[in-house]
Amino acid sequence: MIDLLQYEFVKNALLAGTIISILFGFLSFFVVMKRLSFLTVGISHAAFGGVALGILLGTNPYTTAIFFCIVVGYLISLYGEKSEYDTVIGILFAFTMALGVIFISLKQDYTFDIMSYLFGSILGITKTDIVALGVLMSVIIILFYLFFKEILFITFDKTVAKASGLPVELFENTIVLILSLVIVFSIKLIGIILVSAFLIIPSAITMLFFDNYKKVIFWAIVLNLLIFFAGFYLSYKLDLPTGATIVSLGAIVYFVSAFFKKAD
């Protein structure tokens, strides 16, 4: 694999992957605990509508994707309170994908590779993407470091946290914003369809083995890095798509762990 490092795009992909693995490993604890798995699916699929709109308008697809993800995230929060979250996400997720298909069909000169948005393409990662990811990770780390105890309380027991005067709505809106941003910034590497798995799998695995949140979070980050590098290496060796190989490996590790844990 060392010889691969001479290629600029490989270095970029590995750097981006390292940042995303750490971020996703960390955030996955909150996604799993707050039962936001399906929300991440909703947000990530909304990115497709956004990307398609960007392509149609001839602007940067990632800018419109961020906009779409945030709007969908908030619509889910707003309407989910009124009816059921699953229902609202189920509708919005299909709606934004449908919009994406319509936008693409409206674009006459069809010269882009839609597969790279859906399933990721490591070739597309630039230095600018890495800087953006680095800044995003720093902001998230600072936010969580400063407000960790409040975030922990709200994640654990929203009702009592609210009754004690903690700003629960502000936190929930912020987490939707953070998830929207990390999802859009990860599309190039992992793809719209696969990205939510990367946000769920790490803590789903470590929750099986540890009974303290600090250990769950720490090992989720370590495990996510291992899965990323192993998946990356496998995809190179076996000549398979990178994002799909990484997610498949993660899913296999989860099912094998859950199987053996049950047998305990």
Binding site: M33, K34, R35, L146, F147, K149, E150, L152, F153, T155, F156, D157, K158, T159, V160, A161, A163, S164, G165, L166, M207, F210, D211, N212, Y213, K215, V216
Partner: peptide, 30 residues
């Protein structure tokens, strides 16, 4: 306040001591 139904996140990996410590968080401030 202790709500009617316990609405804590299911299977949250935390100890008894850390749970009670949460009661100090609003008091401590940011």
């Amino acid at each position: 306040y202790l709500p009617q139904k316990e609405q804590t996140a299911k299977n949250f990996p935390i100890s008894v001591f850390e749970t009670v410590m949460m009661g100090r968080y609003p008091k401590l401030g940011f």
